[in-house]
Design a binder for these strands. Structure first.
Lengths: 199, 199
DNA sequence: ACCTGAACACCGTTCAAGT
DNA sequence: ACCTGAACACCGTTCAAGT
């Protein structure tokens, strides 16, 4: 409970607010997120956050952007650690996406909640594209290796990404009806892969 | 602007609140939904809604449940109107899901926002299951007709539903990068179908 | 540059009281 | 049964003023 000794200037208020916001988000949902409460926890006045985030929406946008950056990082890590076959990388991508969704349910909802301030939208969307680009890369590699048929790689990647995303959100929403997550992920990845190989 | 003449009892306050809530939801998002504002628009005191909805969350739950009911109805209609082949029905299902998502973006976000009061959760989840059951039925028919391979129909349906859901949410969130919705839906439906046929 | 303190308009929720 | 009116605690946002 003890607050630091920064005499007047907090020093890193923005960072502190973002960090606390994220843990509160996952605990209480978006509705439980209050700028005033965050300020209290950081030991500053309720008006201080406004210098770092124009309004509540700006804080949410910042959280969403950071979420996309970390999702992309998690996907990249999973792909690197997977066996160097396109199909294994494909499955790793799906698995990592679902893991991220389960660990950051509220954050994921925020990321895809199509709530974006006019200005921040481009930044958030851009951060989201990075994950998609990664998928495009794997599809292209798979095509080069002759594992899957030809076709617009970005179109194929988009459908693949949508599939992973759908399972991830259903899983995060507890709508898998008790079906083991791993099995569903594997089933989806395999079915989709077969469909591509045959194209 | 003129308010009705119901002298004291409103008569159908619950219905009126739900209807207005839905149009406000689609216009201003969940955050723009206020019980007090709704009461004002209905011409009653701000405390009146509490007799029909315990709290704000109860109103959101009611909206989500009605959303699932209508989604299921829309899917059923699409399946009936499609050509009587499993594959055509499959594609119709995907198309109808995406159409619903585009027409009711905010409502869909609410439906899958894993926000549910402890009691209402079961009702909302149950309403969501109806859409899934419809998908199971089509998968079973396709298996009986020999169009797709054997396997746990509910598991296959779950993956199919997740795929449709993923494309629908991506489309609703404007994350299709300008790719024509119809093409993406067709590509997903076709790829998935090929994967199933080959299983 | 960064933060405070007061002020404003708006909430959700509760509860005695009215019809 | 259904609704009112006042009350309470909490918001987000703004803005002059302090350091």
């Amino acid at each position: 409970m003890s607050v630091a000794e920064q005499p007047y200037h907090h020093g890193s208020l923005r960072q502190v607010l973002l960090a606390r916001a994220e843990s509160t988000l996952e605990k209480d949902g978006v509705d439980g997120l209050s700028l005033r409460q965050l300020a209290r926890e950081a030991g500053v006045s309720h008006a201080a956050p406004s210098k770092h985030f124009r309004d509540r929406q700006a804080l949410l946008d910042a959280l969403a952007e950071s979420g996309f950056l970390r999702l992309t990082a998690a996907l990249e890590r999973a792909v690197e650690e997977a066996e160097p076959h396109a199909r294994a990388r494909f499955a790793a991508l799906a698995g990592a996406y679902v893991s991220f969704a389960l660990e950051h349910r509220e954050l994921l909802a925020l990321m895809y909640g199509n709530k974006h301030a006019p200005g921040a939208a481009s930044q958030v969307v851009e951060a989201g594209h990075a994950s998609m680009d990664l998928t495009v890369r794997i599809v292209t590699e798979a095509q080069a290796a002759g594992d899957i048929g030809p076709g617009d790689a970005s179109r194929i990647a988009l459908v693949a990404f949508a599939t992973f995303h759908g399972i991830a959100t259903l899983a995060a929403g507890g709508m898998l009806d008790g079906a083991p997550v791993d099995e569903v992920v594997t089933a989806a990845s395999d079915t989709f892969w077969r469909g591509l190989a045959q194209a």
